[in-house]
Design a binder for these strands. Structure first.
Lengths: 340, 340
DNA sequence: ATTAGTTATGCAACCGATTGCGTAAAAAAA
DNA sequence: TTTTTTTACGCAATCGGTTGCATAACTAAT
C-alpha cells in the first residue's frame, strides 16, 4: 500500500488532467471549489505526498535555508540555531546546517555544497579564519539572499544581525573601571572577526575615556579555546603590572580562567575582577557568579529566520535593511563586586 | 556570466550527447578517458554545477539525512550534532535538522516534512512526550533507514545507539552508596523514555544489591527543566528522612540543584552527595566539581552518522546490528567526596 | 439571438539529469 | 579478410510537478 502516488494517478482517478490536480493541490484560484474539494479528498485518501524533487526542479526553489556556523557545539550557537529552526519550521522551511569548524577551507566547501543543494537563502556566521569572501559572492551574484549573524562581514546587499559590540565592550570595561580596576587586560577572540574587534575597540575607548593608558600588553588575542587556558594564566601571572581586571570575550573561557586562577591562589573578585560575554549558563553556575553581557542568542536566531523568510516571501526587502542591532545588557554579578 | 550551465550546454560545446556528458561527469566506465577529460575541463571552464533538483528527481535520492532532536539548545545534543555533521559533511551528505521541543505533535510534523523532503535516512532522538510511533513507521514501511540515538525506542529493524544506561545508573548509585550515602533520591527525567527508565532501574538494582529499601519517595520524576528547580528543592527539604545522596539524570539540572541547595545552607558534599549525568562542561565549573557519568556525545554522533551512511552505501547492513552500546565512564569528583 | 466576458480545465512544453538499450566503430580473433 | 568482441557513445524515455497559453462551457450583457 505504499507505492508512490503521483498527481497522474489522482488525475486518472478523478478523470481530470494532472495540471488540474496540481493546481487544485496548490489552491490555485482558477480551479472550482468543488473539484478542489474532490482533489483534496482523494489525495488524502490515496496518501498522496508531493514529490519535492519534482516540485523543486520545476520551481527552481527548495524551501530550504542553508546555515553555516563556526561550530555546532557551542551553547550560544545552539540557542541561535534553536531560534532559527523554530521560525523556519513554523512556515515549512527546512534547515540544512553545516559547521566550518573555524576553517576557511571548510566554510568554502560548505558554501559550495549548499549552493549546489539549491538552498533558497543562506545564513552565515563566519569562521575565525575566513579572510576571503569569494565563496559568498557566488550567492549574491545569483541573487540568493545572504544574511550574516554574529560573526558578520560587510558585503554589499547582505544584511547583518548582531549586537552593538563596541558599546558592549565599552560598558563592560567601564563597569570594571567603576568597580575599581585600573590595570586591565582584555582577552579577545581573533581580531579579524569584527565582533571581537569591536569589543576591543569599545574596551580601548573606555580606557581612554577614563584616562587609563593602553598598550599592547593590555590585550591578549586568543582563539578562546578552553584547552589553552594555561597560556593565558601564565600571561596574567607574568605580567609586569598586577592585573586587577579582566574583560574576557567569552563566558566559557572566563569561567575556565576563574577556575584556574582560583587554583593558583587568586581570589576573585578580590584580586582580579572579571567580566565575561554572552551570558552562558556557566556564568551563573561558577562561583563567584560571573558578570557578563547578555547576548540574546535565541532572539537573534528568531530574527535572522524571520528576516530571511520575510525577504523570501517578498514581504520585506532586506537590501534596504542593512544591519539589525539587538539590545545587549550588562549583568553585574559577583565576579566584579567591590571588595572592602 | 552566471546563468545556469546545463549538461546540454556542455554537450553542445563538445558536440557529444548530454548522456555522454552526464556519464563523463559521473566517471562512468564506458566513457573513454579522453572525452572524460574534455568533459571535466569544459565543465570547470564553464562553471558547471549539477542541478541537484534534477539529479534527485531522476535518482530518487537526495544525499540528505534528516535529524530530529528534542532540542537544539542543549550541550549534549549540540555535541552529538557536531559529530553527525562532521562525518556527513565529509562524504557529501547534507543534514536537515529539526527539533521537536519535546512535543509529540511537532515530532510528527517534522517527521512528515522530512519524509516529504525526501531524506535518504532519518536519525531520531525522541521527544519526552512521544508515545505513538506511527509517524516513524512511514519510514520503515518505505525502507528508509531509521536510526535512534540516545532517546531510543525499539522499533523493528531500527538500530539504536546509546550507552548502557542501566549499568551507568547502577554504577552511579553504587558510587554514592560506597561514599556513605544511605538515603538516596533519584531525580529522573520522564520515565517513558527508556534512557531515564533504565537509569532508574540501574538505581533500583543498586539499592537492592546493597540492601537499601526502595519506595516511591526515593524517586522524583521531572522533566529536568532548570526553571523548576525550586519544586525539586522543596521536595528534598520536606522529605521525611534526611536525604544524603542525589543521583540526578542531568548535569545541568544537578549543577542548578547544587547552587540552590547551597543557597539554602546545605553543604555539598558534606550534607548531600550528588552525582550527575553527561559530563557537561558545567560539571567541571561548578563548585564542588560534579561527579558524573561521562556520556560521549560527539562520539555518538560520529557513530550514528557513520552507521547510517555505511548502510546507505550498502557497506554494512544495519538491520543486523540492532543496538550499538557506547562505553560510559564514572567520573568521581568533589561532589561525592567523603567528608570526615 | 448574438457578442462579450467569465470561469474552469486541458495541452504540452518545460525543469535537468539519469539510464536501459541499441549500434557504429575500432580492436581482437579466426 | 571476415567474424566476433569490445569499446564508446547516442537515443529517447523517465523522474513528477509546474505553468503559459488555448479553449470549451457557461453566464451576462446588448
Amino acid at each position: 500500500m505504499d507505492k508512490k502516488v503521483t498527481i497522474y494517478d489522482l488525475a486518472a482517478l478523478l478523470k481530470v488532467s494532472p495540471a488540474t490536480v496540481s493546481r487544485g493541490l496548490n489552491n490555485h484560484p482558477s480551479i472550482s471549489d468543488s473539484t478542489k474539494k474532490r482533489i483534496h479528498t482523494i489525495a488524502k485518501e490515496q496518501g498522496y505526498r508531493t514529490n519535492k524533487f519534482a516540485a523543486n526542479l520545476s520551481k527552481q526553489k527548495s524551501n530550504t535555508i542553508g546555515v553555516i556556523v563556526p561550530r555546532l557545539d557551542s551553547y550560544f550557537m545552539s540557542t541561535v540555531l534553536a531560534g532559527i529552526e523554530q521560525v523556519a519550521n513554523k512556515v515549512g522551511y527546512n534547515l540544512i546546517i553545516s559547521q566550518s569548524l573555524e576553517s576557511e577551507e571548510k566554510e568554502k566547501i560548505n558554501a559550495r555544497t549548499l549552493l549546489n543543494s539549491g538552498v533558497d537563502a543562506l545564513l552565515v556566521s563566519l569562521a575565525n579564519e575566513t579572510k576571503d569572501y569569494e565563496h559568498l559572492k557566488n550567492y549574491t551574484s545569483r541573487k540568493i539572499p545572504l544574511l550574516f549573524f554574529d560573526r558578520v562581514f560587510n558585503l554589499p546587499n547582505c544584511p547583518t544581525i548582531l549586537i552593538d559590540n563596541r558599546a558592549a565592550g565599552y560598558e563592560a570595561t567601564t563597569h570594571l573601571i567603576s568597580q575599581g580596576c585600573s590595570n586591565l587586560l582584555h582577552i579577545s577572540g581573533r581580531l579579524n572577526r569584527s565582533v571581537y574587534k569591536e569589543r576591543f575597540e569599545g574596551y580601548k575607548e573606555a580606557l581612554q575615556a577614563h584616562n587609563i593608558p593602553f598598550d599592547d600588553t593590555n590585550l591578549l588575542e586568543t582563539d578562546l579555546d578552553s584547552t589553552k587556558i594555561k597560556t593565558t594564566i601564565e600571561y596574567i601571572k607574568n605580567s609586569n603590572v598586577k592585573i586587577d581586571g579582566l574583560f574576557i570575550s567569552s563566558d566559557n573561557y572566563a569561567a575556565n580562567c576563574i577556575k584556574e586562577l582560583q587554583k593558583q591562589g587568586y581570589q576573585i573578585p578580590r584580586d582580579i575582577k572579571i567580566i565575561g560575554f554572552n551570558n552562558d549558563p556557566v556564568s551563573e553556575i561558577i562561583s563567584p557568579n560571573l558578570s557578563t553581557i547578555e547576548y540574546p542568542g535565541h532572539k537573534m536566531g528568531v530574527l535572522a529566520g524571520e528576516s530571511i523568510i520575510a525577504h523570501l516571501n517578498g514581504t520585506i526587502n532586506l537590501q534596504s535593511t542593512n544591519s539589525i542591532l539587538l539590545r545587549h545588557q550588562l549583568l553585574e554579578r559577583e565576579s566584579t563586586q567591590k571588595t572592602i
